[in-house]
Amino acid sequence: MQSLESITESPFPQNPNNSSSSSSSSSIGLYGWLVECHGFWHNLALIIPSLLFVLFLGFQAKKNFQKLSHGRSYIMISYYGCLWLVSLLNLVWCFVQAWECTPGKEMAWNILSLFTTSGMLFLEVSLLAFLLQGNHASGLQALTRTFVISGLIVGLDLLLKAIYLFGFGVPLFIDNSEHPRQIKWGLWVVHRLVLTAIYGSILFMYHSKWRERLPARPAFYKYVAFMFILNALELFACALTGNGASFGFWLYSATIVCYHAFYLPLLYITFLADFFEEEDMHLENVYYSEMKDAGFFDADWE
C-alpha cells in the first residue's frame, strides 16, 4: 500500500503546484502593490498626478534649460534643479505605497518618506524665505541667504524626525487608525501648527500696512491661501486622529494625497511658470530693440 500511495502521490504534483503558486504570488504581488494597504483609488490619486507632472517637466526640460542658461538667474536654476530632484523622489514614494504595509520594508519606507518629505519641506520653506524677502530677493546673495535659512530649518526638522523615528521607535510614516499613538500625532500637530501660523501671518501681512514688503504677485497670495487652508485642515485632522476619531484619520489621508499629488505642480505654477513666460517676453523685447537699432523700423517713421 505504501508503494502504491507513493506512486500515486508522487507522479508530478510539484511542478504544477509550483507554477501555479509562482503565478499566484506574482498576481498577489501586483494586486497588493496597487490595491492593498491604502486602496486602489488612493494609490491612483497619488501616482497619476505625480507621473504627469514629471512627464511635463521632461517635455519642458529642453526649453526651460535654454531659458535658464540665457537668464542666468542663480535662484531659478537652483530651485529648478531642486524641483526636479524632489519630484523624482516624490514619484518613487507614490509608486511604492505598498512598502508601508509590507513586512521587512518598514526601514526602507521610513527612510524614503523622511527624505521625500524633507525635500518637499525644503522647497516650501525656501519659497517662504524668498517670499518674505519681498522685491529685494535677487542675485547670489539672496540665493545663499535663502538656502542657508531653509537648510538650517529643514535640517533641524529632519534631525528631530530621525530621533523620533530611529531613536524612540515612533512610526511617524506608518499610519494605523486602530492603534493611534499620542506622541506621533502630537508631533504632527506641532509641525502643522507652526506652518499654519506662518501662512496665517503672511495672509495677515497681505491685508495690513506691511503688504508693500511682499512681492506684488496675485499668484503668491493664492499659493499662501491654499497652503494655509491645507495645513489648517491637516492640523485639525491630526488633532482628531490623536484623540481616536476615525474621521480625523480619513481627513489626514486626504490631505496627504492632496499635498503629495498637487503641491509640486502648484509650486511650479506659482514660482517658475511666470519666470519662463517673462523670459519669453524679455527675449522678444531684446530682439525688438536689436532690430530697432539696426534700422528695421525706420521706414515706419517716413
Rank of each mutant, 00 (worst) to 15 (best):
A98F: 15
G104F: 03
L193I: 02
M227Q: 11
F166Y: 11
F56I: 04
G295A: 04
D298Q: 12
W301A: 14
N243I: 09
P218K: 13
S19A: 13
I174K: 06
Y206N: 10
T116F: 03
A299M: 04
K184E: 11
A299D: 13
V86Q: 05
F95M: 13
A142C: 10
S253W: 10
C258F: 14
I77L: 09
L159T: 09
A237Q: 02
K105V: 07
R192G: 06
I256F: 08
I75Q: 04
F228N: 05
L266K: 03
W109E: 08
C94E: 02
V286W: 00
L283T: 08
C101A: 06
L46I: 05
M227T: 06
F226P: 01
Y31S: 11
F276Q: 01
S26K: 14
D274V: 05
A261T: 02
A137R: 06
N90D: 11
N18A: 11
N64P: 00
R217D: 15
I111L: 15
E100I: 03
T241M: 09
N15Q: 13
A294G: 07
G32T: 12
A61Y: 12
L272E: 04
W210Q: 11
I28F: 15
R217L: 13
E279H: 06
M120E: 09
G242T: 03
F297Y: 15
D280V: 14
N18M: 09
R181D: 12
N17K: 08
E284M: 15
Y206K: 10
Y31K: 03
L121A: 14
G151A: 07
T102I: 05
L235P: 01
R211G: 02
A45K: 11
P11Q: 09
S10T: 13
M76T: 00
C101K: 02
L34M: 12
L214R: 07
G29V: 01
A98P: 00
E178Y: 08
C94F: 01
G169Q: 06
F173P: 05
S78W: 07
H207V: 13
G39Y: 10
Y74H: 15
P218V: 12
Y259A: 05
G155E: 00
S289L: 13
E36K: 03
Y259N: 03
Q97N: 08
G169K: 01
I229M: 07
S126P: 00
V257M: 04
A45N: 12
E284A: 12
W93N: 09
L123R: 03
L89I: 05
I229K: 06
S25D: 10
F56A: 11
F122Y: 14
L159H: 08
L34A: 14
S24K: 09
S208E: 02
L165S: 07
H260T: 15
Q141T: 14
F249L: 02
S113I: 00
Y252A: 00
P16A: 08
Y263W: 11
F53M: 04
Q182V: 15
L230Y: 05
I153A: 14
L165A: 04
F247E: 07
